[in-house]
Design a protein around this nucleic acid. Structure first.
Length: 339
DNA sequence: ATTGCCGGGAT
DNA sequence: ATCCCGGCAAT
């Protein structure tokens, strides 16, 4: 279930290059997610093998809620701890772990991959990868129990489909950003973090999707706007029309706006900004912009000549005023019987 | 006088 | 945005 809801997620955390300095995470960016499921909020609890130490920074980051607007923009909102409104039920740690268990039972296995430059070490346990990083890359004593969590920055948890893995470990290669060939993830990072030498990211590798294609798809569309796979191709350049939107139709000189609402489509003449209602072009239009200095009232010299059609007032009469169109009732240009 | 509706005010 | 109306121009 989790797999189907979270086909692919890439979380990127990058930090200051000073390796042994503070643990402050400079920024956390959700590059993208192809799912709106809040399960992605807590992938560490899913993926980690249960080692509690040195993960506070991750959990604090991942517990930060994200918000999504209708336009598909995603942003971190660390102040709002509430779960966003999604069809999925609220996710607590327990439920997340349960889902995680079900996912793991579904031939998914969490592996730990060293992200140190030119190091492609993949181990099955977090302690193992931590020890590897501590001893090989950080130059600490491997026998020492001391760990300040520094290693967490240099390995990633990758979920591997063991079914496909059984076909050969080479299938794992596409999920690795440090393998030969154009890495699928780091080009994204290059925009924001040119040298992500200390990067931890978590990849949920889908069962039936190849990670590179998914990642490339993400990259080419919205590096920092997470959208669902459905909305990506259908994302219009402009806001979509709803039923109340107006469709502009070219009609003589003044635009005619058709308003989709209850009842028949009735053309509504509208006056654009700075545009007076224009007379019908086959009539005399000699009184344009007559400046009336004699009276305080503005000139109405540009008033449109009276049309030939009977209007609501004349058709229904004053006694049936309720039958008039709205415009006529408001003493506006008749909408029902246009000229 | 009647009709159409612009411009503007009130809510 | 919706509703109403004074007042002007055309008829």
């Amino acid at each position: 279930m989790c797999i189907s809801l979270c086909p692919s997620i890439v979380l990127l955390f990058y930090r200051r290059p000073s390796v042994h300095a503070d643990k402050e995470v400079m920024a956390a960016t959700v590059l993208t997610t192809l799912s709106t499921s809040p399960l992605v909020l807590n992938p560490s609890s899913c993926a980690s093998g249960g080692d509690a130490g040195g993960r506070n920074w991750k959990e604090s980051l991942l517990s930060a809620s994200y918000s999504s607007s209708t336009s598909g923009h995603w942003s971190w909102d660390t102040s709002d701890q509430s779960v966003p409104s999604t069809p999925s039920p609220p996710l607590s740690n327990d439920t997340g772990k349960k889902k995680c268990v079900s996912m793991l039972q579904n031939s998914m296995k969490v592996m730990f991959k060293c992200l140190w430059k030119n190091c492609e070490k993949v181990l099955s346990t977090s302690s193992g990868i931590q020890r590897h990083i501590r001893t090989i890359h950080l130059g600490r004593n491997g026998d020492s129990d001391y760990s300040d969590g520094e290693e967490d920055f240099y390995y990633s948890e990758i979920e591997v489909n063991m079914d496909s893995l059984s076909e050969g470990l080479s299938s794992l290669a596409p999920t690795s950003p440090t393998t030969t060939g154009p890495p699928p993830v780091f080009p994204i990072l290059s925009c924001e973090a040119p040298k992500p030498e200390a990067t931890t990211f978590i990849i949920h590798t889908p069962l039936s999707q190849s990670a590179p294609s998914a990642l490339c798809h993400i990259r080419t569309d919205h590096a920092y706007q997470a959208t669902s796979p459905v909305s990506i191709p259908s994302m219009p350049p402009e806001p979509p029309l709803n039923t109340e939107d107006r469709i502009s139709v070219s009609w003589q000189s003044p635009p005619v706006m058709y308003k989709a609402s209850a009842g028949p489509m009735t053309p509504i003449r509208t006056v654009s900004i700075g545009e007076k209602r224009q007379p019908v072009n086959h009539t005399t239009v000699s009184k344009t912009h007559t400046i009336n200095t004699a009276t305080s009232k503005p000139s109405v010299g540009t008033r449109k000549p009276r049309g030939e059609a009977k209007k609501c007032r004349k058709v229904y009469g004053m006694e049936k005023r309720e039958l008039w169109c709205t415009a006529c009732r408001w003493k506006k240009a008749c909408q029902r019987f246009t000229d």
